[in-house]
């Protein structure tokens, strides 16, 4: 029976340089290390050196353009708001004027109506006066009529006994 040691032996062993096998290449000559250093220096230069395309001036120009565009945009916003405000003010003024005109017309109508009312009241008072006058006249006429009737009946009454007395009444 195999022990645990026997079943856990490395399947592949490192050869090492001391192996007797011929032709084992040994890399990393001093030239290889020079290349490593040069590669690292090149990499460092690439990541820390000046950027191509003059990035800083391009960035500054873009930044200035962005600032200018922002300022222009805000100024245009202000001007637009101002124009809108003026338009609104003008509209409101027109509205106000038309309202004033309407108010004037209404006042005129009111005055006219007031005059008419005055006239009508005067007419009414005249008519009332006439009415009273007529009423007085009618009353006086009625009273006269009543008086006349009363008198005639009185006369009749007075003349009737005499007629009886005289035998003229049947």
């Amino acid at each position: 029976m195999k022990t645990k040691f026997e079943t856990n032996v490395a399947a592949e062993l490192p050869k090492t340089r001391m192996s007797q096998e011929p032709g084992l290449p040994w890399k990393l000559d001093p030239e290889d290390l020079e290349k490593v250093s040069a590669g690292k220096d090149e990499y460092k230069a690439a990541i820390s050196g000046a950027f191509p395309l003059k990035t800083r001036p391009v960035f500054l120009i873009v930044l200035l353009a962005a600032i200018f565009a922002a300022i222009t945009y805000f100024v245009s916003l202000v001007l637009t708001d101002s124009a809108n405000t003026h338009t609104v003010a003008d509209n409101k003024e027109v509205t106000m004027l038309s309202m004033q005109t309407t108010l004037g017309k209404i006042n005129n109508e009111k005055n006219t109506l007031s005059e008419n009312i005055g006239q009508l009241e005067k007419r009414v008072s005249e008519l009332n006066a006439q009415k009273e006058l007529f009423a007085t006249v009618i009353e006086s006429l009625t009273k006269k009529t009543d008086d006349a009737v009363g008198q005639s009946e009185t006369e009749k009454a007075q003349s009737a006994p005499q007629a009886i007395k005289s035998g003229t009444v049947n």
């Binding site: 490192p14 050869k15 090492t16 340089r17 001391m18 890399k27």
Partner: peptide, 11 residues
């Protein structure tokens, strides 16, 4: 050793 062609001197 296989990947880097690197060989230690001794182990």
């Amino acid at each position: 050793e296989r990947d880097f062609q690197f060989y230690l001197g001794k182990i």
